[in-house]
Amino acid sequence: MTPGQAATLGAVVDTIVPTDDHPSGTEAGVLDYLAGQFGRDLAGLRAFYEAGLDAVEAEARERHGTGFPELPPGRREELLRALEAGDTRVPWPFDAAAFVETVVGHVMEGFYGDPGNGGNRDAASWRMIGFEVRD
């Protein structure tokens, strides 16, 4: 993944799970989760991610004349919602909505899954929602 793709990925993750008084997706380690999975279960999806992130970036430039990570949070959300609804302005190598849905699923795995999988740092999301763990 190029530095540009990595920056777009981070911005996408934090659009899916934004910061508030609890950690955002990247603050809770979702990128660590994804990095681990790209070497494991999601190894076959690296090219899909890279192409999709390039397309998201191109959509931002086409619509707003700036990169996706530079957009204010409201515009980023608006853009992903448009893609989710099938509203694209640049050519996509695959269904844009399917890309968003796939990434959302993986981000939630990293955010709400067990810390043993590399995300959900310090069980931040579990503490946020009140899921307790005992032996």
Binding site: T15, I16, V17, P18, D20, H22, E77, E101, V104, V107, M108, Y112, S125, M128, I129
Partner: peptide, 11 residues
């Protein structure tokens, strides 16, 4: 399915 409202609802 995602975004601020989703996170708030989970919480």
């Amino acid at each position: 399915r995602w975004g601020a409202r989703n996170k708030q609802y989970m919480r």
